[in-house]
Design a protein around this nucleic acid. Structure first.
Length: 423
RNA sequence: AGAGAGGUGGCAGAGUGGUCGAUUGCGGCGGUCUUGAAAACCGUUGACUGUUACAGGUCCGGGGGUUCGAAUCCCUCCCUCUCUACCA
């Protein structure tokens, strides 16, 4: 959520930023925020003065009572009635205006970083880095869903039976590969200085609100209605919410956390022909890295995270590219996002396998995640990235490393983790 | 799940209707002393809002109520601890 003082001091910049994200009626909405905030402040001042008068009167009544001047006290008591009525009315007016302000404010996306490219659709994203040559597979190369079936390592029908579409069962070497990838990614994160976290995968409303999934994106999460808890769409939610309402001290910074969790996404209405196999699932595993940094360091941290993800893909010997997302494609809360796409040789498609973002103060403002600088509290910056999401990495490994005899060569770096060289 | 106890500032822990935003201890910060450090002593030390600055306002788990006035009384929800039951 954007900070009102920021909007007030940077009206033009805010409007331009929102327009870059193709937010409709940016100028009108920003002005609405400012006028609601003006009203809020006016009412607040009025209310404060009313309360101050009432407090003063109460104090006097207390003194009169102590001195035994009962009659005078009764007179003062009568006076408080009008003040009470007034403060009640002002209080109601205030919360009404505050709610209106909040409702407009939560609809505003983050202002993108100045380097974010102009553009409306994924086609406008800038490819800023490419690594590895595309695999030259024979004409009869199989897509991963066929490889999976032939080798019997992942079973979609079985998952269908147990749960439903998008919940595959990993079996035998398929399950071992999953475990190998999880351990590999976590070990790499720890080696890079991250602190391992195993968070809950059900979260409450406050947490969903803190990272921005709620109030409006609740349709994307599975909801356990009996207890009003949500299955996490990403480990970012619990790991970042550990710091909700926290004021960090210098010696606790920077925060570098990493965690593996299953992730659950309803993906309502987004299924189609191009999402076969592992390309899109309702449940998948992901290792997430989260950083909390001082504002002046956050873009250095973002580059650090990018380098980490690059090293993972390079160790797995997968061709990939990095996209600098354009204003129209960047997520609601993000100021700057790099997407990593891995090349899946048989599908001949780039598959998104990581998204690394700096949210600046957008999340911390909601979380009330702060630190002290020169005696004053200030919002911190939050960042996160996938390092990495498993299914599409597995899809690319299966497709790119398939052998003429229908098997799959395991990337060397994973062999110690899974205990076999060939699937 | 049942019974009991309890949720107060970074932590510990007072406070049961009126100078309580909150005694005190620890911790933190600043100072005196010391070659330096420790000890001792003195001072300082919550958050939010607001003002040029002061003032003012709000916050004692969340929400609601009683009262001129609530950390303190009432209702409600949440959470923690102890015991019992159950259980990977």
């Amino acid at each position: 959520m954007l900070q009102v003082p920021f909007i007030r001091e940077n009206r033009e910049l805010t409007v331009a930023g929102l327009q870059k994200k193709y937010f409709k009626a940016a100028a009108e909405t920003v002005d609405q925020v400012l006028s609601l905030d003006d009203a809020r402040r006016r009412i607040q001042l009025d209310l404060d003065n009313t309360l101050a008068a009432a407090n003063e009167l109460s104090k006097q009544i207390g003194n009169l009572m102590r001195e035994g001047k009962k009659a005078e006290a009764e007179v003062s008591k009568a006076e408080t009635a009008a003040l009470k009525e007034r403060s009640k009315a002002l209080g109601e007016e205030l919360s009404k205006v505050e709610n209106e302000l909040f409702e407009v404010l939560v609809l505003l996306p983050n202002v993108p970083h100045t380097s974010v490219p102009e553009g409306r659709t994924p086609d406008d994203n800038l490819t800023i880095f490419e690594h590895g040559s595309l695999p030259e597979l024979p004409e009869n190369a199989l897509a991963h869903w066929d490889i999976i079936k032939n080798l019997d390592i992942i079973d979609f029908e079985l998952g269908n039976k147990i749960t439903g579409a998008g919940f595959p069962v990993y079996k035998g070497k398929g399950a071992r590969m999953q475990r190998a990838l999880i351990n590999f990614f976590l070990d790499e994160a720890i080696a890079a200085g991250y602190y391992e976290i195993q968070p809950p995968i059900l979260i409450n409303r406050n947490s969903g609100y803190g990272t921005g999934q709620l109030p409006d994106k609740d349709g994307q999460m599975y909801h356990a209605t009996e207890d009003d808890l949500f299955l996490i769409p990403t480990a970012e939610v619990p790991i970042t919410n550990m710091y909700r309402d926290v004021i960090l001290t210098d010696d606790q910074l920077p925060v570098r956390n990493a965690g593996h969790t299953p992730c659950f996404r309803r993906e309502a209405g987004s299924w189609g022909a191009h999402v076969r196999g592992l390309n899109r699932l309702h449940q998948f595993d992901k290792i997430e890295i989260v950083q909390i940094r001082k504002p002046e360091e956050s873009y250095i941290a973002l580059e650090e995270m990018v380098e980490h993800v690059k090293s993972l893909l390079e160790k797995l010997e997968l061709p990939y590219r990095i996209l600098h997302l354009c204003g129209g494609d960047i997520s609601f809360a993000s100021a700057l996002t790099y997407d990593f796409e891995v090349y899946s040789g048989a599908q001949k498609r780039w598959l998104e396998c990581s998204s690394v973002s700096n949210f600046e103060t957008f999340q911390s403002n909601r979380l009330k995640l702060r630190y002290k600088v020169g005696g004053k509290t200030q919002l911190l910056h939050t960042l996160n990235g996938s390092a990495l999401a498993l299914p599409r990495i597995l899809a690319a490994i299966l497709e790119n490393n398939q052998t003429p005899d229908g098997r799959v060569q395991v990337p060397a770096v994973l062999v110690p983790y899974c205990g076999f060289e060939v699937i």
